[in-house]
């Protein structure tokens, strides 16, 4: 019986299909994360503004993203945009847009708190040396912020990788969906396939998330030295 279950993974090109699905998940997560980091850093700087309207506006954006389930956003962008705005995104494109929208808000808030945690005298010392505001950010504030940011950014990235399992609902075939297809196509012949397939998916998620947290730890160490 046990042999039966694992056999399913090596039937046809099932295992390759699972890896293909994993690649789709990873592509969406990494692309969205790259965009989120870029846009989030800018947003974070904007969020430290002293201007009330700007603060209210960014706060509103952040809270909207936090309150709205990602699934609702996915449906809005995938189906809603096609129906009401005549903009027909592919499933993967819609996923990247939503994840970037979400990631930018989260990232912005992380950057804001990291920026605010930099003591005022760091800025003042920079100005005292005759640096412009841009130079102070570039040479003093941002390098320090990055180190404080790393752990939470990695956390956000792994969360994003795991949340990609939602995109199946807008027709993107990622790793979990491929797993379900494999389980279903063999459900009359291999009833216990579910355990094996989900077990492998669990390992696959670990295999892609672990290097990221290792890389972050190494980078952190390097920055410290």
């Amino acid at each position: 019986m046990q042999n039966l279950g694992i056999r399913i993974l090596f039937e046809g090109n099932n295992f390759l299909r699972l890896l293909g699905g994993l690649l789709v998940s990873l592509k969406i997560a990494v692309l969205s994360m790259a965009l989120s980091v870029g846009l989030g850093i800018l947003l974070g700087m904007v969020m430290t503004s002293k201007k009330r309207p700007i603060r209210i506006f960014t706060r509103l954006y952040l809270e909207t993203v936090r309150i709205m389930p990602q699934l609702v956003l996915l449906f809005l962008v995938y189906f809603g945009a096609a129906k009401h705005l005549n903009v027909n995104f592919s499933g993967q494109m819609a996923a990247v847009i939503v994840f970037t929208f979400w990631g930018t808000a989260e990232m912005g808030d992380l950057v804001r708190s990291a920026l605010e945690s930099i003591p005022v005298h760091q800025y003042q010392s920079g100005f005292a040396l005759g640096m412009t505001e841009l130079q102070v950010y570039r040479h003093i504030v941002i390098p320090q912020t990055i180190r404080r940011l790393l752990p939470s950014v990695m956390n956000l990235l792994t969360r994003m990788i795991k949340t990609t399992s939602l995109v199946v609902l807008i027709g993107v075939i990622e790793v979990v969906k491929v797993g379900k297809q494999i389980i279903d196509s063999s459900r009359y012949t291999v009833p216990d396939a579910a355990l094996w397939v989900y077990g492998v998916i669990f390992i696959l998620y670990f295999v892609i998330c672990y290097p990221f947290s290792r890389a972050a730890a190494l980078l952190d160490k390097k920055l410290k030295d």
């Binding site: 090109n13 279903d184 196509s185």
Partner: peptide, 12 residues
């Protein structure tokens, strides 16, 4: 794609 035997993906 996961409703055997009406619509499903085979092992290939």
């Amino acid at each position: 794609s996961d409703k055997n035997p009406f619509g499903y993906v085979d092992s290939n």
